[in-house]
């Protein structure tokens, strides 16, 4: 019963690692959950009925129609 190797017996190695090196084992699991969450969470969120919020406008909206230029003076 020596230290199991990852490539020959992966499941046994994982069990050994979770007992003998818990901090690194679980931090690898937590860390690799990150990209999974990035890919998996938005479809899940939409399936649960959440709608994507509108993006916050970063500039003023450009007016659609032709611009009217002021003529003369206002106080006349």
């Amino acid at each position: 019963m020596s230290t199991p190797q990852f490539w020959s017996t992966p499941l046994r190695y994982l069990r050994w690692a979770s007992h003998e090196r818990p901090a690194i084992f679980y931090s690898l699991i937590i860390g690799s959950m990150g990209p999974v969450a990035l890919v998996g969470l938005p479809p899940l969120r939409r399936a649960l009925g959440d709608v994507d919020p509108e993006t916050i406008p970063m500039s003023y909206p450009i007016p659609a129609g032709p611009r009217t230029f002021p003529k003369g003076y206002d106080d006349e």
Binding site: A23, I24, Y26, S27, L28, I30, G31, M33, G34
Partner: peptide
């Protein structure tokens, strides 16, 4: 390692 994992998650 735990903190780095949470910084990624």
């Amino acid at each position: 390692p735990i903190t780095i994992a949470y910084v990624i998650l």
